[in-house]
Nucleic acid binder design. Structure first.
Lengths: 394, 394
DNA sequence: GCTATTTTTTTTGGTGTCCGAAAAAAAGTT
DNA sequence: AACTTTTTTTCGGACACCAAAAAAAATAGC
């Protein structure tokens, strides 16, 4: 907060810190707290003048799209969540033509309530379940929508004139983990989320990896058993068809493997009921969890073989049942993967926390916001550039 | 070659190019070709003075370790291969205690023959089949060795005082592809090699990805069928157990799936025989290739789901049989992967070329050599550094 | 109350990298 | 021989950063 601390963190000299901070003060991006002394039991020496980010310098919006819900957060430049709300919509009727307008209206109303003008929003970050194409800025397919290929980024950019970015919800959890504990969650790690579906997030070489078109890490729809159980995506044998809530219910109630997932009443309640049964010793429930654990072990084995992460995090609502799956998972891992590859990695089981998705969205958007300002600063600096050198920014 | 061209390529001003090149000339890293005019039909204007890398500035060694063979290349600073040789050794007897000495002797003799002193070798790059731990610098397991955990990097570094780096051979093919055609092979792409085993190389976000411990992309030992065919690694159902040469021979000759791979005479000859049979219309051979193709399709599907590459390259000796596998592969891909994920990627089938591994090794080592010199230059520059700032190298 | 001490911040002068503009060099053209 | 063209070098300056010194603002001791 004080200049001297900034110097330590950035490893810049005090002289440079003074130069940079005075620039930022001029631009109004940071504020000096000379007036309100925080009455710290001051040691002697010249007191440090605290600096803080100017909360009003810019705003970002985070939007999480799930079945029937749009969850919005308004965050100021200092990273504080200023306002939140939840808007309901009808997932079963939402498609490429109707949803963009619904989302724009929801955000507009939200900003109006918050008393923030459109122009002050610099970044909009979106997280959605399902197959999200970050590159094209659309949702290829998601349980939250009836249609396919729902465009999100360009309608929002047109409507608000802000940078917009859409990503898979599990990617946002991955980003949130890195931000919450960079020491533990850095380098190369993977996050597997068992919830309404099965998702994976990859953090590779110190950055979030989302593949060439942005749909990377669709772990749930990687095949587990050729020609196996029917999956929500229409194919057979996907990992999700053995691991998700409907798959557990289907297995525990001895429904045939080709029972249409849409007809199975699963969801949070179905899973909770199954958990209760398992806790009270029900054979079918226990067996279903054990078998799902084994499948998970096989999935984890494939991730290790292909990605070789330092750490693997398991999370999602289904983690409440992990104790019933653990043994099965260990067995599956043992069966599927040669010992040479099974060393050198650690497994975290993380209790599920809804807020992770929001934190990740905010972290990601804040980072992009920083880049916006950095880019703007560079553009101001080069008044008459001889040429635009993309790499090597001096 | 001329300063003006360097300026265009690096996007530095002519003034800066002159400054830098005169430094490099002083250091002896580059040479000026003032004497031997290449008699280009000179346009008017001051003639360009050509510069070239000083071939004698440093040397690198590339070593490829395969079954019974050590293939060495000596490359000068200009990237020219100065000398090559092949040294035989007994893979069946090579283990952690014996092999390092064998390799050191082979390299020593090679250098002696070439008349290059040890001290002039700056980089040694090694490629090996199998599970290679880049981080620890050892081969965890490889068909080229009888034992496990063969240390390579530290013995070589001790013996030659040069930087040393070991990697999987498929990774080197991946690197070579990027170097040979950076336009086509950039960003995020995957290479699958079907040969003596099944390997994969990943190029993600414009860099070679080798995972946390360096064993990434062990595609061949990712599970395909739980409890399935016996693999060379000892587990059941690995992709390799359906796709590699021994697997093809095993399937075509109707041997049971748990036949020990070590007892199957496959290799180049076995594969060639099977190809002949298929070409002459043999049902069993055709069926074996078709089925292997299907398995490959499933494997490719898993890579697409998890990695989302822009491009996928198939190569390796077995590509001669691709025409017999193609239909099966398309079927497998169709069966395994939902259409939403199957778009947006292209498939290259690349005829196999042994030299790729060497080119990749050289490319990688040259790059590391550049970094060595860059680091050395920076260290010279900072005579009395106030602090060592790891990132932001000014 | 005054001086000394401590700590933070700012100022000053200097270094290194890069650039633009001008000058120099080395050819061909007329 | 004078002019044109192209490459290379030189020169002065902009910018980012730093070290050292100076200034500022507090406490501690007498």
């Amino acid at each position: 907060m004080a200049r001297i601390d900034l110097g330590q963190i950035t490893r810049l000299s005090p002289a440079t810190v003074t130069a940079i901070t005075s620039d930022l003060l001029d631009q109004g991006l940071i504020l000096s707290l000379e007036s309100e002394e925080p009455k710290t039991p001051q040691a002697r020496g010249r007191p440090r003048t605290l600096l803080k980010l100017n909360p009003d310098a810019a705003f970002i919006i985070g939007a999480r799209l799930s079945v029937n819900n749009i969850d919005l957060s308004l965050v100021d430049f200092a990273g504080e969540v200023v306002r939140e709300n939840r808007t309901k919509f009808d997932s079963a009727a939402a498609d490429a033509s109707s949803f963009p307008e619904i989302l724009i209206t929801a955000i507009s109303n939200f900003l109006k309530e918050a008393g923030v003008q459109r122009g002050r929003v610099q970044e909009i970050g979106i997280a959605a379940q399902g197959v999200v194409e970050t590159e094209t800025g659309q949702v290829a397919w998601s349980p939250a929508f009836a249609g396919r290929k729902i465009p999100i980024v360009s309608p929002l950019q047109d409507a608000f004139g802000a940078q917009c970015y859409i990503s898979n919800d599990t990617n946002m959890i991955t980003e949130a983990l890195h931000w919450s504990d960079p020491n533990r969650y850095s380098g190369t790690f993977a996050v597997i989320m068992l919830d309404y579906g099965v998702g994976m997030g990859l953090y590779l070489n110190n950055q979030l990896f989302s593949g060439a078109s942005g749909t990377a890490a669709e772990f749930g729809h990687a095949n587990h058993i050729p020609g196996g159980a029917l999956c929500r995506c229409g194919k057979r044998g996907c990992l999700e068809a053995y691991l998700s809530d409907y798959a557990l219910v289907r297995a525990a109630t001895h429904l045939p493997e080709d029972t249409d997932p849409m007809t199975i009443r699963a969801g949070v309640r179905g899973l909770a009921q199954l958990l209760e049964k398992a806790a009270s010793g029900d054979e079918n429930a226990l067996k279903a969890f054990h078998e799902a654990g084994r499948v998970l072990g096989y999935g984890v084995a494939r991730v290790i073989a292909m990605i070789d992460p330092k750490r693997l995090v398991l999370t999602g609502a289904a983690m409440r049942a992990f104790s019933f799956m653990e043994k099965g998972m260990q067995d599956g891992l043992e069966e599927a993967l040669v010992a040479d590859l099974r060393n050198n990695f650690s497994l975290d089981v993380m209790p599920w926390n809804e807020d992770f998705i929001r934190s990740g969205l905010i972290a990601q958007s804040m980072e992009r916001l920083d880049k916006d300002f950095l880019g703007a600063a560079e553009r101001t600096a080069e008044d008459a550039p001889r040429r635009d050198n993309a790499e090597m920014p001096a």
